[in-house]
Amino acid sequence: MAERTQLSVQRMAQTLADQFPILLQAAAGTGRRALAEFIALCEEVLSCVDSPTRTTPDSLAQFIGARDADVMNHDETTRAIMGTESLGTLRRQADNASSQAAVALARPNLPPAVSTSNGPVHLPDLLRSLTVEAALLADHCGTTLDRAGTAQCLRAVASVLGERFPGHTIEVRVPPFAAVQLGSLTAGPVHHRGTPPNVVETDTATFWALAIGTLSWTQAREAHRLRVSGVHAPDVAQMLPIVRRR
């Protein structure tokens, strides 16, 4: 990797690692399954960073889509880790897995692309995807990621939205963390410079809830949690949710 890219990857890796204490504490207070899901997340980090590949990687949207489609395998992995272990045993395992994964993410020369059970992926996209997974687990445990983790998660989700619906007709804004331009699902103006005439703006909590399907577009509009302008802006309702809630 070029030096600038390597530094960017290291920051992303550190951001993911910084979420582990938050998740560990929340999972321990939630129960055995949450701890097993946290262990699975850490074990995936360990497995992937030791599996470099030269196979052409999937895009972020392809990779997250593959993970969403593989929810049954995700559940089987979680159940296998959980087994009949006590809460205390799982907590000790989670402590160890967290420490090992954090050390792995701190390595100075991580591979540019890795092999995973859901296909090959660029390392930055793996880190983005796992941060989304971390946010899903945090949501399940009734907590949130820190500011940097939230930013990394929401930018990843916005990138997936932009990849799935490319274009420059609609702009979705989630200040201060993310903004993405999208194409309309119907015939819309082709916009080349500046801000598109169709804009959707919302806060981070609303965007995340829309992204994982815990809040509908109609509910968000009725609660005045969306600022929508332009005839094509409501097309975004048909692009949601973006990721599947575990």
Rank of each mutant, 00 (worst) to 15 (best):
T5E: 14
T5W: 08
S8V: 12
V9N: 05
Q10K: 01
Q14N: 09
Q14F: 06
Q14E: 13
T15F: 04
L16F: 08
L16M: 06
A17L: 03
F20S: 00
I22Y: 01
I22W: 00
Q25A: 01
A27S: 04
A27N: 02
G29S: 01
T30C: 00
A34C: 01
A34F: 01
L35N: 02
I39D: 04
L41N: 06
V49Q: 06
D50E: 13
S51G: 05
T53A: 06
T55C: 15
T56E: 14
T56A: 09
D58T: 06
D58W: 06
D58F: 11
A61Q: 10
D68Q: 08
D70K: 10
M72H: 08
H74G: 08
D75H: 07
D75K: 12
E76D: 08
T78P: 09
R79V: 00
A80H: 10
I81W: 00
M82R: 04
M82I: 03
M82N: 01
S86R: 02
L87P: 07
G88A: 05
L90H: 00
D95E: 12
S99D: 06
A104Q: 08
A106S: 12
R107E: 13
R107G: 06
P108H: 04
N109A: 09
N109Y: 11
P111G: 04
T116C: 13
S117N: 11
H122C: 15
H122E: 15
P124V: 07
D125Q: 02
R128G: 11
T131R: 08
T131S: 09
T131N: 06
V132M: 12
E133R: 10
A135G: 03
A135M: 02
A135Y: 00
L136A: 04
L137S: 00
L137M: 05
L137C: 04
H140P: 08
G142L: 01
D146K: 03
A151C: 15
R155I: 14
R155D: 15
A156F: 00
V157T: 10
V157G: 00
L161P: 01
R164W: 11
R164H: 09
P166I: 07
G167C: 14
T169G: 11
E171H: 09
V172G: 02
R173Y: 10
R173H: 14
P176N: 09
F177W: 13
A179K: 14
V180S: 13
Q181T: 12
L182T: 12
G188R: 04
V190F: 12
G194C: 10
P196K: 14
N198D: 15
V199W: 10
V200F: 09
T202N: 13
D203I: 01
A205Y: 07
F207R: 13
A211F: 03
L215G: 03
R221A: 14
A223M: 15
R227C: 10
H232K: 15
D235Y: 13
A237I: 05
Q238E: 15
M239A: 10
P241M: 10
I242H: 05
V243I: 13
V243K: 01
V243L: 07
R244I: 04
R244D: 12
R245Q: 07
R246A: 10
R246P: 09
